[in-house]
Design a protein around this nucleic acid. Structure first.
Length: 375
RNA sequence: GGGGAGAUACCAAAGCGGCCAACUGGGGCAGACUGUAAAUCUGCUGGCGAAUGCCUUCGUAGGUUCGAAUCCUGCUCUCCCCA
């Protein structure tokens, strides 16, 4: 499934190719988040033509609640339902264990949820989240885990990671005893947990590695801990996770976070930041990060980004985009989202090229400096 | 011509003797956002000051009162109804 094409000599960065039934994915890669069967505000055509997203995410919890598995089954899976023929990855709902913590109860069996839509009661288990993800039919599916909060006590993190490991065994069993519904192979990725505790992360990484699946993920990071903590955990975990398999850092992050993680051997990323922050007026540009709502852009008629990661970045001016966002026009959110996603995709694509060319480290240092600029 | 209602901060609109530098919306200014309960949320929005605070405000000019955006009188303006 995964082949490494080149490795950076000065760091753990690598460039590879991830092969899935719906297409090949060059790594490092950033995956736009499309929780409810849509990357908010963006057409599938724009995802392929303007952004060239190689793979996008869906979410088991959201899709299970709406439209529900019956409709997804009748549609022939999510690819067909949403008219997307490139690769898909679905999160298991593990993150919702974290983000909807007020509406759920955990036990060894699984998690009892109250729907955020109507308050109705639902149960997620390692088994039924596999079943649902079989129906959805994503190329890569995730094991059900508990994304532990930060800060959290060692004792809580220990219990939590043990639960995640227990759930993993059951998920793998169900995965092995079931078949894809839509005739295309699916890959299951397990998730390393353990909070910010080195000993727990080591134990978890060993457990996850021993599952022998096609790729591995690191979860429970970028939940509020300082970035340096996150980088340290990545280093510890990546010393243990097999080097010949893809490593997916879940939910990360800022452009700088991504470059730092690539340097430490991560291959896959996803994050809502380019879309959500874009909708809220924050733009990532080659000149630095900016809040387009700020008064100073009112009469700045220069392009959104002169280096133009996408066509819209060059076609529209900062002043026009500011006007759209201030006026609450849909098009503002759309342009900002397209630009930001294209920026992220271009960033990881450049990282890949620099790794192949053998000058990743130097490029990364200069990029981190540039990206830290607040305009 | 006759009768009535009203003028509050950028806009709208509460307040009707002290708890008022003045509720609340909107607008504006800034901030947050990391496996999406988010096209959402938070703060500020008369001046000066880091701050207890001080200064200038509720159409306008006077007055009553210990004290007025609030009560009284004149003036200016706006709106409504009838002829």
């Amino acid at each position: 499934m995964f082949t490494i094409e080149s490795r950076d000599k000065e760091s753990n960065a690598r460039a590879g190719m991830l092969r899935t039934p719906h297409g090949d994915i060059p790594t490092p890669i950033f995956m736009p988040v499309g929780t409810g069967g849509t990357v908010k505000g963006i057409l599938q055509r724009e995802l392929t033509e303007d952004i060239d997203a190689k793979i996008i995410l869906g979410n088991t919890y959201h899709l299970y609640l709406r439209p529900g598995t019956e409709i997804l089954k009748a549609a022939g899976g999510l690819h067909s339902f949403m008219s997307w023929d490139r690769p898909l990855l679905t999160d298991s709902g593990g993150y919702q264990v974290f983000s909807l913590s007020g509406n759920r109860k955990l036990n060894r069996e699984g998690a009892v949820f109250k729907s955020h839509i109507d308050g109705s009661k639902h149960v997620f288990t390692p088994e039924n989240t596999i079943d649902i993800q079989r129906v959805i039919g994503a190329d890569i599916i995730m094991a059900f885990d508990e994304c532990t909060p930060w800060p959290c006590e060692h004792s809580y993190a220990k219990k939590s990671v043990e639960l995640t490991h227990h759930w993993l065994d059951r998920a793998v069993t169900r995965f092995r005893e079931t078949e894809p519904l839509w005739g295309k192979e699916q890959y299951l990725f397990p998730i390393v947990q353990g909070g910010v505790f080195d000993d727990l992360r080591k134990i978890s990484a060993e457990k996850i590695a021993s599952a022998g699946l096609e790729g591995n993920a690191i979860g429970g990071l970028s939940v509020g801990e300082p970035a340096e903590e996150m980088y340290r955990i990545i280093e510890i975990v990546n010393m243990i996770l097999p080097g010949d398999k893809p490593r997916y850092l879940m939910g990360v992050g800022t452009p700088v976070n991504i470059l730092e993680a690539i340097e430490r051997g991560i291959d896959m990323f996803d994050c809502v930041m380019p879309t959500r922050n874009g909708r809220n007026g924050m733009l990532f540009t080659s000149e630095g990060t900016l809040n387009i709502r700020n008064r100073k852009w009112m009469d700045d008629f220069s392009p959104i980004d002169p280096e133009g990661p996408s066509a819209v970045s060059l076609f529209y001016s900062k002043a026009y985009l500011r006007h759209l966002v201030m006026a609450g026009e849909n098009l503002g959110a759309q342009i900002a989202s397209i630009h930001n996603l294209a920026f992220y995709l271009k960033l990881v694509d450049e990282a890949r090229k620099k790794i192949q060319e053998g000058n990743f480290r130097k490029w990364k240092e200069s990029m981190v400096k540039k990206l830290s600029e607040r305009l």
